[in-house]
Each structure stands twice: as C-alpha cells, then as structure tokens.
Design a binder for these strands. Sequence first.
DNA 1: TCAGATAAAATCGCGC
DNA 2: GCGCGATTTTATCTGA
Lengths: 87, 87, 87, 87
Amino acid sequence: MTSTSNSAGHLRSIVERIEKLEQDRAQLHYDVGQVYAEAKATGFDPKIIRLLVRIRKQDPSARQEEQAILDLYMASIGMAPEGEEVA
Amino acid sequence: MTSTSNSAGHLRSIVERIEKLEQDRAQLHYDVGQVYAEAKATGFDPKIIRLLVRIRKQDPSARQEEQAILDLYMASIGMAPEGEEVA
Amino acid sequence: MTSTSNSAGHLRSIVERIEKLEQDRAQLHYDVGQVYAEAKATGFDPKIIRLLVRIRKQDPSARQEEQAILDLYMASIGMAPEGEEVA
Amino acid sequence: MTSTSNSAGHLRSIVERIEKLEQDRAQLHYDVGQVYAEAKATGFDPKIIRLLVRIRKQDPSARQEEQAILDLYMASIGMAPEGEEVA
DNA sequence: TCAGATAAAATCGCGC
DNA sequence: GCGCGATTTTATCTGA
C-alpha cells in the first residue's frame, strides 16, 4: 500500500483526476483560442465569429423555450404533453 | 469544389472546429461533475474538495500575500484574525 | 476622530456601505419571492410566470443582437452604421 | 374595468411588480459596483474587499469548522497547512 | 490601464 | 434526501 489509508488514497485519486480533467479542459480552451487566432489571420472578424457561434447555439434553445411554454400551459390545464401515449 | 468560395468553406470549417472543441470541453466538464459525485458518495464533502483543488491551483506565495493583505485590512477595521475562538 | 486613521475609516465606510446595499438587495429579492407566492396563491403557476418575465426581458436583447450582427457586418465592409451623419 | 378579466389584470399586476422590484435590485447592484470602484480608486484591492465582505457574512464558527475539515483533508494527502513558509 | 462584456463557477431551490 | 436546473456571483478577456 502506498498511502496511509484507503481513504487518503481515494481522496488523492479524486483530486488528481479532477486536476487532470481540468488540465485537458484548459488545453481545449487554448485550442479554441488558436482557431479564433487563425480565423483572424485569415481575415475573419473574431467578433462576428463569436456571434455566429453563439447564435447557432441559442437557436435550438429558443425553440426549446417555446416548447417549454407550450408544455407548461398544457400541463396547467391538465393536458398530456404532445407525443405521449396514455398507456 | 464543394463550397461557393474558399472563404465560405474556411468560415464553415472554423465554426465547426470551434463547436467540436466546445463539445469536448462540455464533456470534460460533465466528467468532473461525475468525479465530484463519486467523492460525495464516498463520504467526502464536495465543497471542501473544491476548496482544496482551488488552493492547489493557486501559487502558494500568491495565496500568502493575499492572506497578508486580508489580515491587514481586517486589523485596520478591528476584526480579529481568522481562526480565533471568542472564548 | 473616531478611527485610527483615515484609511481605516474609509475602509470601514466602504465595507459598511456595501453591506447595506447588499441587505437592501436581499430584501428586494425576498419581496420578489413574496409576489411569486401571492401569484401561486391566486392560482398562477410560478414557473410560467418566471418564463414570462424572462422572455419579456430577453425579447429586446434578441432584437439588439440582430442589430449587432448587422452593425458588425456593415463595419466589416466599411459602411457607416445606420442613422449616422458623415459630418 | 380596464382589463378583460380580473385574472388577466392580476397577472399583469404581478408581472409588473416583479419587473419593478428586479429593476430596483439591478440599480442596487450597480451601486455596489460604484462603491467597489471608489474603493479601488482610493487604493484598496477590490478582490480583497470582496473576500473581507464574504468572511464577515459567514458564521465564524461555520468558517472554523470548514477550515478544520480542510486541514484534515490536506494532511491526509500530505499537503502542508496553509500559511507556511517553505524556508 | 480600466470599464464593460463574456463566460465560468458556485450556490440555491425545486421536483422526483 | 438527492440529483438537476436555474440563478447569482466571480473571474477572465477584449476593446477603448
């Protein structure tokens, strides 16, 4: 056994795994920055690209929100949500 | 050629690469959450683990300096330093 | 003079003003909760109300975002934004 | 009667009151920012002030307990307690 | 260098 | 009581 106790070993393992995942995440974050840099070098305005990406991401959620309203109202008047079978 | 112009193709490539990277990042974020969940299930307090990870990430001397300034401020307005019992 | 130094007095004043403002903010937050509670008691679904309020708040910003895209593109091709005089 | 029904009138009233309260809250939030700005202009580190305010808000004994657990965790994975010099 | 915007993290409250 | 989603707060980043 390399650690004082199982508990300590587990704690260490947890902390190290988190740190590893966070490192990978940071690397990915850096990579995103690189793509933006390349975009800029190619003549694209990074600001516009950011906007584009954000909108592509939000579009579906806007639709989802509409659906949420609908579902909520249907529930409030005691109707089953669309696409559901009774049994 | 598959696209209207090189420029449009490049723009598409940029956006798609960014979205791919962001997806991977989100996955990693989820994984971190899983580790915290496991920690909690094993009996560790996730809140403290977060604190621990944060401290490990900080430059130790930076943290000391921060603490020193905090002590100064606290002293100047008549607060007792941290970690003191009232009685 | 009531304080050891001007600096300490100022620090104390700053901290106290922040705490006062935060208290007021918390009170307002509580008040919002009260209105939601009243709504619920009157038979409205708080969840729907929240959605309503959120959408009313986002609607204008969605329009603003559209405008931002337009402005960005116009700027990128060297055109002045709408509603601007040359001199 | 100014509204289609009492219910609709009430709903409108609810939404408007919520929006009013949220506006006031936003104003207060802005005011807090102003105080921090003043603090910074006077030479105080806003980051430390934030820390200070957070500590004052915490129950002192809760904070001690948290610190105790943290020390335990740190000891169990072989980290030195905080506030220690390397040499 | 600083204010404002953006995005990330942490906390909180609800529903299951 | 616990996970999950929403909110709020904090920190990073970009442009002026």
